[in-house]
Write a protein that binds this DNA or RNA. Structure first.
Lengths: 178, 178
DNA sequence: GAAATTTGTTTAACATGTTAAGTTATCCGG
DNA sequence: CCGGATAACTTAACATGTTAAACAAATTTC
């Protein structure tokens, strides 16, 4: 991990298999998805140890955190707010309920819907973790710069909006029905 | 998905459990990790269907993509380039090898190291997927703006660098040994 | 109002993320 | 040489991501 290895591998023949090369195809590590992935990982790396010490995963934290902002919330809404897919949320809620960190009951008007809320035990846990999380977030803000951080989030938001309208074309190579 | 639901859930009593409230604690959905997660998801949502049509996951694609840039590469280096953890890479390589998309052999000088390279079948697959991927990337660039995209990536890179030096403090609540 | 359809949530199945524990091969000091 | 570090992977175990299918309650149709 000393970072001395050749950054792009030892290549002598720059063409390799003739048919493949259609340009270096964008340096790859500089692609947008990779940039976003690395940036997010750099951020989360700061938080994970603290969460772990409290027996929480990132997603469990997101759920409890979202629950502190409301009295009760329906599962689907919670999935949207915590940005989790239904199946993941379903599993995590089952575990959190078993740990008595949340409470759950069916809605009176619609028995399909589940209403979730944080328990007092869950609240205590949040209170125990929050200070450290806030401190880490504060240091990140300070290091990167509050101004720049706000700007970055604006740009990320606009990226989202730019792609929201973009239709996902599947090209349909292996499937053509539906 | 029409976006009509109440954006913050139906809350009547604004205080709920008294001990919880210590400030809204940063709107949460506007936290940096969430912003990065949503942005990346918005981007990957564009690519996944195409990859899926070719029987590839995002990570498998990253690996094959990285392999086209080199003649051969060691597993550890590949993990660094494709930004995957060792265990994930180990599993994926096993599968890709079983599908004859890559080739693998032990290094002569050090039998621990594995040298990986893409197979001709793997190259053909890459060639089949690349055009669509490039087209999608081009449209993203056009929609968001090439100038702005470059700026965003610069800012993401600087965020990485800002946090690289930051020591990960674990606070040691539940563990104090080591 | 019963059948068909839709909606909210959960299960299933497979792939990856994440940390810890193995395995085998090198390296190193005596 | 030999036994104790190290290093490079690989396995194991558990949690989540992702898509498809199952289920039950609610809504719509006829």
């Amino acid at each position: 991990m000393t970072g001395k290895k050749s950054p792009n591998g030892p290549r002598s023949d720059q063409e390799g298999t003739p048919e493949a090369r259609r340009g270096p195809m964008r340096e790859f590590s500089r692609s947008l998805p990779m940039s976003l992935l690395r940036a997010r990982e750099a951020v989360m790396r700061q938080f994970r140890p603290s969460l772990r010490n409290h027996g929480l995963t990132e997603q469990q934290w997101r759920i409890l955190r979202a629950l502190t902002a409301v009295d009760t919330i329906e599962v689907t809404e919670l999935a949207r707010v915590a940005f989790l897919l239904g199946p993941s949320l379903s599993r995590i809620l089952r575990d959190l309920e078993a740990r008595d960190l949340i409470e759950r009951r069916a809605a009176k008007t619609d028995l399909r819907r589940g209403e979730v809320s944080i328990s007092s035990k869950g609240l205590k846990l949040i209170e125990a973790v929050a200070p450290t999380s806030e401190a880490i977030y504060a240091e990140i803000t300070q290091r990167y710069g509050a101004r720049k951080l706000a700007e970055l989030q604006d740009m990320l938001g606009e990226l989202e909006r730019s792609l929201a309208a973009m239709e996902v074309a599947g090209e349909g190579d292996a499937e053509a029905d539906e």
